[in-house]
């Protein structure tokens, strides 16, 4: 579903991501693990079509990703961001936020679709006309997930979707993400530094360090703490 081949990303002269080749199958949940500066967020931005200064080949399903504004990408993948406080427009109600993608693409039955989306992420109807500041962090993240699903994309990009949440709220959001994936056969591409979260949500992972993939592993290898690379072992040792 997602194929990266020899992807190199540059900021000015410096390459922040070097010859990364990855492939994620349809319906799989994949994690890109690394610390800040490893380039993991940069890869996510490229997949989201927000950066054009990359070389190599990227395919999403049958679609070849263009350098620059790519209209087809909208229906293929959407993103859930890290910060539930920064990812929702502060002056727009839940209803407006969820209706917007429908309005942009001229999709009808908006009332019904908004209600369905809210139900799918477990948001009660009473939240529909609230503004983001009237919601808790977990509720906001549910709105962000619902927004990403409004256009029914097969791929969801997840940018540390729970790292800004309390642990008990993290559990709720992780459960929701897992249930949505099971129900809809979504493909997840998650960026994170949290190995236990990967262990819960993902099937496969790649470890990124200074713009290079140091190790690809299955989640079983993670569970048995059987990483081959020294850096992978180091990460494990920090994750108590």
């Amino acid at each position: 579903m997602i194929d990266l081949k020899d992807v190199t990303i540059r900021y000015g002269d410096a390459a922040v991501v070097n010859n990364v080749t990855l492939s994620v199958e349809y319906g799989q949940s994949f994690a890109l693990v690394g610390e800040s500066g490893s380039g993991k967020s940069t890869i996510l931005k490229v997949l989201a079509g927000q950066l054009s200064n990359w070389s190599g080949r990227i395919r999403l399903g049958e679609h070849e990703l263009a350098h620059g504004r790519d209209k087809a990408l909208v229906r293929l993948c959407q993103m859930v961001f890290q910060d539930p406080y920064g990812s929702l427009h502060p002056r727009k109600s839940v209803d407006a936020i969820l209706s917007e993608p429908l309005a942009i693409h001229g999709i009808g039955q908006r009332d019904q679709r908004v209600q369905d989306a809210m139900a799918a992420v477990g948001l009660a109807r009473k939240f529909r006309f609230r503004l983001p500041h009237q919601l808790s962090g977990g509720q906001r993240q549910r709105v962000a997930i619902a927004r990403a699903l409004m256009l029914d994309p097969p791929v969801l990009l997840l940018d540390e979707p729970t790292s800004a949440l309390d642990v008990s709220v993290q559990a709720e959001v992780l459960n929701l993400l897992k249930a949505l994936q099971e129900d809809r056969g979504l493909t997840y591409f998650m960026v994170t530094h949290d190995l236990p979260v990967v262990s819960f949500l993902c099937d496969r992972l790649a470890i990124l360090r200074q713009g290079r993939v140091v190790e690809e592993a299955t989640v079983d290898q993670l569970k048995q703490q059987a990483f081959r690379s020294p850096y992978g072992q180091e990460l494990l040792s920090h994750s108590h």
Binding site: Q170, A171, N175, P196, S199, F200, Q224, L236, S239
Partner: peptide, 14 residues
């Protein structure tokens, strides 16, 4: 509710 490295639960308790 905290996931662990060797996570086998299909849902985390809420």
């Amino acid at each position: 509710s905290v996931p662990v490295l060797n996570e086998h639960r299909n849902r985390l308790p809420i």
